[in-house]
Design a protein around this nucleic acid. Structure first.
Lengths: 258, 258
DNA sequence: TATCATTTGTTCGTATGTATC
DNA sequence: CGATACATACGAACAAATGAT
């Protein structure tokens, strides 16, 4: 029996005690925690209090709970996949997506039509409700089983006159090629955000509790700096990390927007 | 009174109903939700069930709960600050951190000595328990109030023979300059991860519930591609996003590590 | 295959504490 | 100060998932 005599709510004291026990090594990563009944006995509190404490550690991402099995210390291991965010091209002008070969498409992508929202419209320098070719891909990394969702958004105006209008499910690297052959000199900007997943994202990406998603938005710009394509990538932050390579610019830095 | 007659746990049904009400616009961003007592009346369920439903929406990040006041719909607005991750330098060789002027140091940074861990050692190509100069900075964005934690880690070996050994609290841009004058041609690599904050991080960054943190690790490399400095930046993902600029490389892409 | 013990999930009830207005 | 609202805590019962018998 461990003594509980500290400030704060009782369940917080229990949570702190369990947290210390984990960090001190009493419960190693992957190992099961005592059952609720045992924690009740050990700390002499009621079941709701124990469950509250467990819920707190769960929201913290420190433990993982499985119905009918028990609670387990989550291993804080390195991410299984590092996603390099860069674009390369070979001498003959073909583009190569970084680590493209690692990802497999779970099912054949089905292109559809949609319209810009406030967020996507802003990134594409368009208003709301503008017509788009859209294509969703559910990707998996064969080695680690990591899942990711990829979406390609191409404005009608951009696709018009190219083969993109007939085949909106063209993979990004090929789309870059098509735009380059159309006379564009491409560059890309990417914004990274993290947030808690929506319920359907949690299901699709098979995410455990208390796992944020990394949300990338890549905008392909053409010669006149006009946005051409928007790609979105969503991946669970528990298995994946992003990597960027940076070199010094010649120009002075721009200001952050307020 | 709204009907609740769907599959799944009762509290999940209630959560789904509230979620729909929010997304349909019945409760606008910032507006208060009905009180627990009202939700009990509205959905004809017990208090634990309502609290369970509210807890689910909270973990989802959809609502915000204030003790004694009520629950409020969280606004899914754009992040207050966009942090540009690039390095620029002027003609005279001085480095400029992007959006560096926006951040203010809350208190004077106090450098101290520490040692590499498994994670930091790997990024610096060092073993564990190697000696480091360390400097923590708590930053705030004056316009939005956003907070961030910045840490600079410099191996003893790198600092030796430079002014960095005497002044380990040298800001990064100046450190780059010092290393450049020491003959290094610098480039940087950056990895981005997201996770739930530790309890002390939540307090320091003043984060609301269900808010992940973006965790950046920037490694400064010298001429021989050897790691020189490791910087870590932690910022709440509710207020901040990261921005990168990408141009096509000439070389083929490297493989993702398994 | 079927049954059972164990463990977590869900739901009710009730009482009291504490922050806000 | 009182009224309202959320937070904490206890007790009890049954449901559902899991793994072993």
């Amino acid at each position: 029996m461990t003594e509980i005599q500290r400030p704060g709510a009782l369940y917080q004291q229990v949570a702190a005690a369990i947290r210390e026990a984990i960090l001190s090594g009493e419960f190693e990563p992957g190992a099961p925690l005592p059952s609720e009944a045992q924690l009740i006995e050990r700390y002499q509190v009621s079941r709701p209090t124990v469950r509250n404490a467990v819920a707190a550690l769960r929201a913290e991402g420190l433990i993982e709970v499985h119905h009918g099995k028990g609670s387990f210390v989550r291993s804080d291991g390195q991410p299984a996949v590092t996603i390099e965010r860069r674009v390369s091209h070979t001498r003959d002008g073909k583009f190569v997506m970084p680590s493209g070969s690692v990802w497999n498409e779970v099912e054949e992508p089905t292109p559809y039509r949609s319209r810009t929202t406030k967020g996507t419209g802003q990134l594409l320098s368009l208003g709301e409700e503008e017509a788009l070719f859209t294509c969703d891909r559910l990707l998996t990394d064969a080695a680690s089983g990591t899942r990711a969702m990829h979406r390609t958004l191409i404005p009608f105006e951009v696709a018009r006159g190219t083969t993109l209008a007939e085949a909106p499910n063209t993979p990004p690297a090929s789309a870059y090629e098509i735009l380059t052959q159309a006379g564009h000199k491409l560059w890309w900007s990417e914004t990274v955000r993290a947030r808690m997943p929506l319920p359907d994202e949690r299901a699709a990406l098979q995410l455990p509790d208390a796992t944020p998603v990394l949300h990338l938005s890549r905008v392909t710009h053409g010669t006149d700096d006009h946005p051409l394509i928007l790609e979105e990538l969503r991946v669970g932050a528990d298995r994946a990390e992003l990597a960027y390579r940076i070199t010094a610019d010649k120009e002075p830095a721009r200001r952050t927007r307020a």
